[in-house]
Amino acid sequence: MTRLFAAIALLGLSGCSSSLQWYVVNPNTTTGWNNLKFLLSGLQHTILLSVTAIVVSIVIGLLVALPGLSTRRHWRAVNQTYVEIVRAVPILVLILWVYYGLPTLAGISISVFWAGVVALALSDSAFEAEIFRAGIQSIDKGQYEAAHSVSLNYVDTMRFVILPQAIKRILPALGNQLVYMLKMSSLVSVIGMQELTRKANELVVTEYRPLEIYTILVLEYLVLILIVSQGVRWLERRMSADEAR
């Protein structure tokens, strides 16, 4: 990754390619600086959209995971049906359906932001459900038995005994889903969400410099995702150190 950055920087600074014209995003010129500010103004929306969507998807994912752990077949069928259906729908299609279809169906109006949150969260919730299911199933049966023996009910057993241990184990996987969500949030640009990709598209339409502008867009996502990935890795190291302690 560092090499890639260096190569791109070198390419830009040296101006070795006549096809690259960096003036469009050169911070030393007024136009370039304004363009850069315009591109970066989508960052907060990308982050807000992704973080909200991941939180909602974690909640839905947990609610979907629980019936998947039941010993009763019909409860497991609820989980399996949800996971299979949601996983089969492409995210882009889901975004379009939620924004253009859901308001008609449900008789509600929905903002671009919340349409994006709902579509991303629904789509990701199937994966979150599988992560939760695996995490919860990895907890030793003896923990349930101990909870039973101190008279805890199902909700208290999950809340105080099983989930705190399961969540600790799946935190790195949840972090990876955040990385995935940040990338997928770019698709919400198609319904007009003013996030990073949409901003880049709008600038391309006015400046006609797709190569330079999309290169900056790539760099924006790279930096954002590398920071989150480092955070996830730090978390993984901390978790394994905790386990070993």
Partner: peptide, 30 residues
Amino acid sequence: KAATGMVFQQFNLFPHISVLDNLTLGPIRA
């Protein structure tokens, strides 16, 4: 459940909380 207490071969303590919390969880919640 209220009438019986159980001690397991593998202890089955709750590893993520302190010894004291292991002992208070049941009395507080149940």
